[in-house]
Design a protein around this nucleic acid. Structure first.
Lengths: 342, 342
DNA sequence: CTGAAAGCGCTAACAA
DNA sequence: TTGTTAGCGCTTTCAG
């Protein structure tokens, strides 16, 4: 039954009083301990402990004007690729003593704008987004707040936000070239919703004008294993059977692979299948998936550095292009019946 | 070249001055617009816009004592199961007008404690964690801060934090029972790191004392597709071949499946494989994976409600047990050579 | 090395 | 319906 047992949370003044010092000294113990005499510091620290003192984030933020966190808006957490991006962003931001707050947008610009507002409302100092398609409300938000914001997963040096990403069109072209090099001329292209995803659109566009010009048939499905399966079934029902399936995402390729197996189609003997992403699991599928590696870890780190420097120094970072590269594994081969020497 | 062009961000006073009203009125326009006369409100809103006024999160927080966000600490974003949990947490928290901030712990209690501190530092009003194994620093943090915290993915009514989860031991037992019911007597059990994961330990413990007592051999691997593949290879090299493989996680089961296929082992004809989790993709693997469904979406929503009510009303929520259930699909069957009628 | 005091931007009584 | 004013918990000069 001590007197102050039921009081609210202690504040700086309480600690100062308990330690017999001024609030300024307590503040110094937190922010510049070396400027406080050892004995005084000890006394203050004891007071902090015995009062269960916890500094108020808000009070600090209001004084310093800094919250030390930035927000990342990703389409979904459902695709393993974002786990990699976020992990590297987070660890790189930590180098700058910045925290990362994650929000998902479901590929919906309106939801993105709303979530962005939510992040700003809780004090985000900067934002990292995906792609170059955003709601007007999003742009007006970052403009009003003069908020640093960078975009990832897409490279476009002329975009109004600095972009840190790869060339989606080139990545898709690399994949297609691998297939045509193997001799495929009828190719099914499987991709996720294009209306809501500019990365997907860029990849599709990258396929245009490739030479030699193969016969391409497009299948748009939900971006998931189930979507890949649906595409697999649709492809098998087509009049003219493609000898290869180019999936614009590894997740889709996995689904296609499973469905073809389910239908008794041998990969790559009867049909080649390839992806684009290079997820961690893709190397271990059966058969191991040929794909195009996207440098998502480096991208996450680069985006983290970019937003950090913007937040810290007010310097707008430069756009940055990261290379992607072909990873040939076991799921692709020449078309069935082709001369294996040719 | 107006006079105030280069000033810092506008504040409430600036807006009030520009609109010719008091700061209180401006505040009301934000927080209770209906109490302000239409004309006044309009004038204030115009002033807000023309000054690019953005309310300060910190200042609001310091006054209301609320930040309106809670933190979730999850082991990893790499396993699709957490995407489901987090998605439902987030949408349910939104019902309470609360935001969710996500951090990953990599199954490391020290990292968890550190990240928890980071969340508190930026103002989290409550925390959601996984499991019942945490660092002393974590406990002292939530105690010092009197911070609401609930635990998920585990049910233990006697734990010091309210647990909202399923019975991991029972789920594993359900899986094992399915296999023994099918007639399997030699079963390989594949699981992730047990030292760092109490859910895994609980699942393993759940296998004990099951009757009829089958021959169980355990394989501990990294919790990933690659880990599942490694387990698959190890199992095939064992002296006594199990007729079934029980994976304590769907991710592992996928890897086992791929590896068995790679080695030419037919599932379920030669070996049955089952998982535990019921990820969205599991229903679409080849063959479709038999598993135990964990109610992660409901769990996320329940955890959100629990932490929300705690944060809002200071009432410590009750622990809550959610049922898991068997989902029989195509990856399990009786042991090879068994009488299909028996 | 330490303290006094002036705010940071906002909310919420209380008055008018 | 609107204004006045006292803080919220902390940092940060500026003195001593």
């Amino acid at each position: 039954m001590q007197r102050s047992t039921n009081r609210k949370r202690a504040n700086l003044r309480d600690v100062a009083a308990a330690a017999g010092v001024s609030v300024a000294t307590v503040s110094r113990v937190m922010n510049a301990p070396e400027t406080v005499a050892e004995a005084t510091r000890k006394r203050v620290e004891e007071a902090m402990n015995s009062l269960h003192w916890v500094p108020s984030a808000a009070a600090r933020a209001i004084n310093t004007g800094r919250t030390r966190f930035v927000g990342a808006l990703v389409p979904t957490l459902d695709n393993a690729i974002f786990a990699r991006v976020l992990a590297s962003m987070e660890s790189q931001l930590a180098e700058h003593r910045l925290s990362l707050v994650v929000a998902t947008t479901d590929n919906d610009p309106d939801q993105e704008a709303e979530k962005a507002k939510g992040l700003v409302d809780i004090g985000a100092e900067g934002l990292i987004v995906s792609g170059v398609t955003h709601a007007p409300e999003f742009y007006s938000l970052i403009e009003r707040c003069q908020l640093p914001a960078v975009s990832t997963s897409f490279y476009d040096p002329h975009y109004r936000l600095p972009t840190i990403g790869y060339d989606n069109a080139a990545a898709a072209r690399t994949a297609l070239a691998h297939l045509t090099d193997l001799g495929h001329r009828q190719i099914a292209v499987v991709h996720g919703p294009s209306a809501s995803n500019d990365r997907t659109r860029a990849r599709i566009a990258g396929l245009e004008g490739h030479s030699p010009k193969p016969g391409l048939s497009f299948y748009e499905v939900e971006l998931s294993i189930a979507g890949g399966c649906a595409a697999g079934r649709a492809i098998l029902q087509a009049e003219e059977q493609p000898s290869a399936v180019l999936c614009l995402s590894d997740v889709l390729a996995s689904g296609v692979l499973f469905e073809l197996q389910r239908q008794g189609v041998s990969v790559p003997r009867e049909k080649s299948v390839m992806g684009l992403d290079d997820l961690a699991g893709s190397a271990h599928l059966f058969p191991e998936l040929t794909t195009v590696h996207l440098p998502v870890s480096r991208m996450g780190a680069a985006a983290a550095d970019a937003i950090a420097s913007w937040v810290e120094t007010q310097q707008v970072p430069e756009p940055s292009l990261l290379a992607s590269d072909l990873v040939v594994r076991a799921s692709t081969a020449g078309p069935a019946g082709a001369d294996p020497e040719g």
